[in-house]
Simulated scan of single mutants.
Amino acid sequence: MAKSRSRIENDDCSSSPNYLTSMRGDDDQLLSHLFKGINSTSTITRSGWCLKDGTYHLLQACNGIFRPIVEAQGVETTFMSSEVEIHAEKEVTCFQSLCRAITGQGTSNSTAKIYWTRLTDLVGNDFCPENFADREDYEIYLQKEIGFSRAKARYIIGLSEAFVNGTLSELMLKTGSEKDIRDALLPISGIGDWTIDMFLIFHLQLPDVLPLGDLNVKKGIADLFSLRGKEKKEKMNDIMKPFAPYRSLAALYFWKVADSKPSSRKKKATKKLNSSPKKNNTMNCPENKRKGNIAKCSGSMDTPVAKRTKRLRRKVTP
């Protein structure tokens, strides 16, 4: 706690000492309320940092600009050890985590889950690199059985071969520095900065990863700081510096906010539905005396089908 407080006093967003003292008192109360009943041991993440300390730091940074988000969304439980134990029957390997990240590339969350379920069911309990790399024509097999694109199937096979030939290893990925991990993964086909960021955040649970390649994170920063126009990546990186060393936690909150909002497609559909004119369903229509048309009435089920004129066809919308 003390480390987080001293860091806030020295950042560019700090305010007067009296204001900070008052704000800290409110944040202490909020923190106690949020983590009430939560075992302190479960707030220690896989990489050793404390979720409670990270949440307190977000509340304090930049005069508490993040506080409304934390108040609205509550505790971010993704990194809690109790949640990890519930959702994982056995430890997930680095290879499996990277495969899942590749599976989710360029697809929606629901589609990614379907692909991942098919892949795990296909491989079974023997989900290891050798099970992919040693089979001939396995790329075609993955396309047919899982529904992968040709490129995505190749990415999975290429990753498997990198583990088999020693280019990558579980030990190096678990114990190496962030720079070493990035340098090792970037040359692998199908693995870019976004995939590495997802691996560092969700599998290794490193505290200070800021995935600026993610649209929801960039939108979250823009909304939080009222940025307009296309802001450069460097500017967003500078803006988020006061939230270090817990920017991974900030990213999780941005995703949580994005998930809690209705999609723009749903908004448009609702707006269109509400604004669409009501159809005329009256059964009593005046007789249509136009030559060649026999009593056309849109609401009558008993109206005989009339010969359509050229003008009528132009009015019909597909």
Rank of each mutant, 00 (worst) to 15 (best):
G176M: 01
T167H: 13
R154Q: 15
L168G: 07
I188Q: 01
I146T: 09
I156A: 09
S177Q: 03
G166L: 06
S177T: 15
T175V: 01
M172Q: 15
L142Q: 06
Q143H: 06
I181F: 10
A162Y: 06
K179Q: 15
L168P: 08
K152I: 06
T167P: 01
S160E: 02
E161L: 13
G158Y: 09
A184H: 02
S149V: 11
G147N: 07
G147Q: 01
Y155G: 03
D180M: 14
K144A: 10
E170R: 04
A184P: 00
S169C: 11
M172C: 09
I156W: 08
F163A: 06
E161K: 15
I157N: 01
K174A: 12
S189H: 03
G147A: 08
R154K: 15
T175Q: 07
L186V: 12
G158S: 14
G166P: 05
P187D: 02
G158F: 12
I146D: 08
L173D: 06
I157P: 09
A153C: 08
R150D: 12
G166I: 04
A151I: 10
G176A: 15
R154V: 06
L171T: 15
L173C: 04
L173R: 00
G147T: 07
K144H: 11
S160N: 00
G190T: 00
G166Y: 01
A184M: 04
Y155H: 07
G176N: 01
I181P: 07
E178N: 09
L186S: 07
I157V: 15
G166K: 03
A184N: 04
A162I: 10
R154A: 13
R182W: 04
F148K: 09
G166W: 05
S189Q: 06
A162G: 08
L186M: 12
K179W: 07
G158R: 11
G190N: 00
I181K: 02
E145Q: 13
S149N: 11
L185R: 04
A153K: 11
L171A: 14
L168Q: 06
Q143G: 15
T175I: 01
I157K: 14
F148N: 01
K152M: 05
K179T: 14
S160Y: 03
Y155R: 04
Q143S: 09
I181G: 06
K144M: 02
G166F: 05
S189K: 08
